[in-house]
């Protein structure tokens, strides 16, 4: 018997068992996710006819999606909102993750994480709507500020525009940003920080030279896990964005459900995902030196 045959026999056991075990889930994902995504990609190159799709290969949908002033501005705005939300969310989240990891007693960490995650799991729609209440003309912020005499006219720049979209999304994705950073911080061997200080660095410099680089994998994960889904958020721009806060998901919904233009809707969706993927790849590439090393 040759080594090759032995190898095959080994494959027959572990690899085959693993594949068999994962197959129900994998087949489901192939049928319900991979195939539909492939279909969208295909549709984006077809031509829209009245009430039917014409099987003519074309780039027209992409030309339209990328050159039409309306679509382009929505796309750029979505990207801008997504980036701002990501920046705000991750910056606000880091100190919390740091606090829970470094300053909370080990026995209470779970409780803190639980407290942080709870709002995330409670009705998203209602949470978004409540931000409308908080930021609205007669809302909590305005009536509060008027009440204590800071302003005498309600502020109107905080609702139905990009600002309100950013605030609401930053709120919605907060736990998503905190958890990966927390996990990365938890993995840091505390003696490394002592070593940093032992070698003569101040606490702050130790943080910059030791803690931050070691936490970067978590930060990168946070950025991606916030950035990618936010660009496709539908509810928030719809409810609190107003006409000038519309984002790409609203556009996709419009094309699919209102205008029945599947090919153009698909082209917009594919373009949005392509841009997001490109941004993510560039971002990961810029941070790759932090992501190497032992797993």
């Amino acid at each position: 018997m040759s080594a090759g045959q032995r190898k095959t026999r080994w494959r027959d056991t572990e690899a085959a068992n693993g594949l068999l075990m994962v197959s129900p889930t994998a087949i489901y994902a192939l049928l319900m996710l991979a195939a539909p995504l492939g279909t969208i990609l295909l549709y984006s190159f077809l031509t829209d006819g009245y009430l039917e799709i014409i099987r003519d290969f074309t780039f027209a949908n992409y030309v339209e999606a990328w050159t039409n002033e309306l679509y382009r501005s929505v796309m750029i705005r979505s990207l801008g909102v997504s980036m701002t939300v990501t920046l705000v969310t991750v910056l606000l989240a880091f100190p919390i993750a740091y606090f829970v990891s470094f300053h909370v007693e080990p026995s209470k960490k779970s409780l803190w994480l639980f407290l942080i995650t709870i709002p995330f799991w409670t009705s998203y729609l209602i949470r978004v709507f409540l931000w409308k209440v908080i930021l609205g003309y007669n809302g909590v912020v305005n009536s509060g500020l008027i009440g204590i005499g800071v302003i005498d006219q309600p502020l109107d720049f905080i609702l139905y525009n990009v600002n309100s979209v950013v605030i609401t999304l930053a709120h919605a994705y907060a736990p998503f940003a905190i958890l990966p950073i927390f996990v990365a911080l938890e993995k840091i061997d505390r003696s490394l920080l002592e070593a940093g200080q032992d070698l003569g660095e101040s606490k702050f410099v130790t943080f910059l030279r030791v803690t931050l680089p070691l936490a970067m994998p978590g930060v990168v994960a946070s950025v991606l896990i916030v950035f990618i889904p936010t660009i496709g958020d539908y509810v928030t721009p719809q409810l609190v964005g107003g006409p000038e806060g519309r984002m790409v998901a609203n556009l996709i919904q419009l094309q699919y459900l209102k205008l029945d233009n599947y090919p153009l809707g698909s082209a917009i969706a594919v373009s949005a995902m392509a841009i997001v993927t490109l941004c993510s790849v560039i971002f990961v590439g810029l941070n790759r030196r932090y992501l190497k090393g032992p797993k």
Binding site: L33, L37, G232, A249, I252, Y256, S266
Partner: peptide, 8 residues
């Protein structure tokens, strides 16, 4: 994004 899952 869920909307991508939904439309596809």
């Amino acid at each position: 994004p869920e909307i991508i899952v939904a439309v596809s």
